[in-house]
């Protein structure tokens, strides 16, 4: 058994951009995920950070094949997910699940909490029979710290944190191996967010879960992750041990991102040097040639427009896609090179 549970190779998700009008002519594409190589190890939490529009949620969706990749492949436990047919896909849906951001939008307001949690059991034919299912629902509610007696109640009777627990119970119903948490604590208040983060960790230890923790909140990611991957404009630009990435970021984008995170420590805030980036993130329909960060990079130099940097080791177990660590990557054909 390989120690890698999920592997993406050259993964691409491109969305067509179409003109208005009857013919809906294809005028371009949004390169939301644009050549991602990533490994998620069994039992670990990989944190995936990046700013709005960097493609982190699309990547999470593509790993579960909730959106169809347009290129590259995804392997789950050695199987090529991109080639699965409907029946096999259903088996994947039991083993690889998602916890969504908004516990208000992701629960059916007209279904009781018990029905919501029981739904995956019905779909996958687990614990057949009403009594067995009810027993399993009670067990799941208890697992996430809710009173099993709450099963007949409706989502509106619960607070945001409790609803998120329901979402987690539903995700865990089929005894999955892999859970994508997409901004799973983003809409919760700090005091409640801590409860849910603690719960996720406890469940990981008890059930041996593997997490992809997708978030814009670097402090939360740092807290839960074993390793961290940083995304920019559809590409993973840095990945490594959580301590290393958060204390010694190697890619200039990761350095700027980390320096911008406000610290809840007034003295540290006053000492701090911020790297303030110039300009705006380019559109994912017009990705710069070579290194996609070069248009905003304070340290861009000659090879950046001409060679698309590959992830390479900056220190053991810590990789960055930046020419400052040696010019390695795919040369850009001369006619596609943009201005430096």
């Amino acid at each position: 058994m390989s120690d890698v549970l999920v592997r993406a190779r050259g993964l691409q998700v491109h969305f067509p951009v179409r003109a208005r009008g009857l013919r809906r002519r294809r005028t371009g594409e949004v390169r939301a995920v644009d050549g991602v190589d990533l490994e998620i190890r069994r039992g670990e939490t990989l944190g995936l950070v990046g700013e709005s529009g960097c493609g982190k949620s699309t990547l999470g969706n593509a790993l579960l094949r909730l959106v169809e990749p347009t290129g590259g492949r995804v392997e789950f436990d050695g199987t090529d997910v991109t080639a699965l047919r409907a029946r096999e896909l259903r088996a994947l849906r039991r083993r690889a699940v998602m916890v969504f951001q908004d516990p208000y939008a992701s629960l059916d307001p007209r279904a009781t909490v018990g029905q919501t949690v029981a739904e995956p059991l019905r779909v996958h034919g687990l614990h057949p029979g009403a009594a067995a299912r009810a027993a399993r629902v009670a067990e799941l509610l208890e697992l996430v710290g809710l009173d099993p007696a709450a099963a007949p109640r409706y989502p509106h009777e619960f607070s945001g944190g409790q609803r998120q627990r329901v979402g987690i119970a539903r995700a865990l119903a089929g005894e999955p191996d892999f859970v994508v948490c997409d901004e799973a604590v983003a809409s919760l208040d700090v005091s409640v967010q801590a409860q849910v983060l603690n719960l996720l960790r406890e469940l990981q230890q008890r059930l041996g879960l593997t997490y992809l923790f997708v978030s814009h909140d670097l402090a939360a990611v740092r807290h839960v992750s074993d390793r961290i991957a940083v995304m920019y404009l559809g590409r993973v630009v840095e990945v490594g041990d959580a301590d290393a990435v958060s204390t010694r970021p190697q890619h200039p984008y990761a350095q700027a991102l980390l320096s911008a995170v406000p610290l809840p420590d007034p003295a540290a805030e006053r000492r701090r040097e911020r790297i303030v980036l110039r300009g705006e993130v380019p559109s994912a329909t017009r990705v710069p040639s070579g290194c996609r960060f070069r248009t905003r990079c304070p340290r861009a130099f000659a090879p950046c427009p001409d060679v698309d940097p590959a992830l390479q080791e900056a220190e053991p177990g810590h990789r960055a896609a930046c020419h400052l660590h040696g010019v390695v990557g795919t040369p850009v054909p001369a006619e596609q090179r943009g201005p430096a």
Partner: peptide, 14 residues
């Protein structure tokens, strides 16, 4: 303040 995840937790702090 205690509930807040810290970016600069010490090693193993997570």
């Amino acid at each position: 303040l205690g509930a807040l995840p810290q970016l600069h937790d010490g090693p193993g702090g997570r």
